[in-house]
């Protein structure tokens, strides 16, 4: 494992921990999109179907369990916790799941490396992860006033994607035959979705101001 991959995984882990910290300690999920969190839970459930059948390393198995456990518990908190669910911006978080899920499923059925159930589900999870942040970005745009933890959560997710691209470039040059078009293109699309957010995050950081997104 190279340093970019490890740093990517660690920022991904940090993003989830920041979100859980916000929900668990402040008992608030204001500004967090339940739609995005449900999509992530679906992404991990479809991607890690092989968790008990294909052993890669202890690190991989533990990380998979953490991502599955944290994404489902975040969804549980936002839907059912008697205090947390009251802070959920339901009326603002109106993005429809199926607008993202259906096209990704069709695309995975058409474009995949192997037409088997596990492989199509894995490919579907890559396509869906690429666009799963959209409801969150729309919610941020609508609420505009973003608290620090929510801003840091999205920033860390974007950093994770950027680091994964560096990881692929590194692997392409160091490992023979490391070519994964489906992963790369969906990963690139995903990272580009954060570009706009990163621009405003950088501006607010540079000017030492609270993060505001333009209408």
């Amino acid at each position: 494992m190279n340093i970019f991959r490890l740093a990517g995984d660690m920022t991904h882990l940090a993003s989830v921990l920041v979100l859980l910290l916000k929900i668990h300690t402040i008992k608030s999920c204001a500004g967090v999109s339940l739609k995005t969190q449900e999509l992530y839970a679906l992404v991990f459930a479809c991607r890690y179907l092989d968790i008990f059948t294909n052993f890669v390393s202890l690190y991989n198995t533990v990380m998979k369990l953490i991502f599955l456990g944290s994404s489902f518990s975040i969804v549980w908190y936002m839907r059912y916790h008697k205090v947390v669910r009251r802070s959920y911006d339901k009326d603002q978080d109106t993005f429809r799941h199926y607008f993202l899920v259906l096209p990704c499923l069709v695309l995975a059925l058409l474009i995949n490396e192997k037409f088997t159930f596990k492989e199509v589900m894995w490919t579907f999870s890559l396509y869906l992860e690429a666009v799963a942040i959209l409801p969150q970005l729309v919610l941020l745009q609508r609420t505009r006033n973003i608290d620090n933890l929510t801003g840091q959560y999205v920033f860390l997710l974007g950093a994770y994607r950027g680091l994964y691209i560096l990881n692929w470039i590194y692997r392409y040059f160091t490992e023979p035959h490391f070519v994964h078009w489906i992963t790369w293109i969906s990963g690139l699309v995903q990272t580009l979705l954060y570009a706009d957010f990163f621009y405003y995050y950088y501006q607010s950081w540079k000017n030492n101001q609270k993060l505001h997104l333009p209408a």
Binding site: R5, D9, V56, S57, E175
Partner: peptide, 10 residues
Amino acid sequence: GDKEKGKDEL
């Protein structure tokens, strides 16, 4: 095989 190599990523 080589196609499976990327599957060690999360």
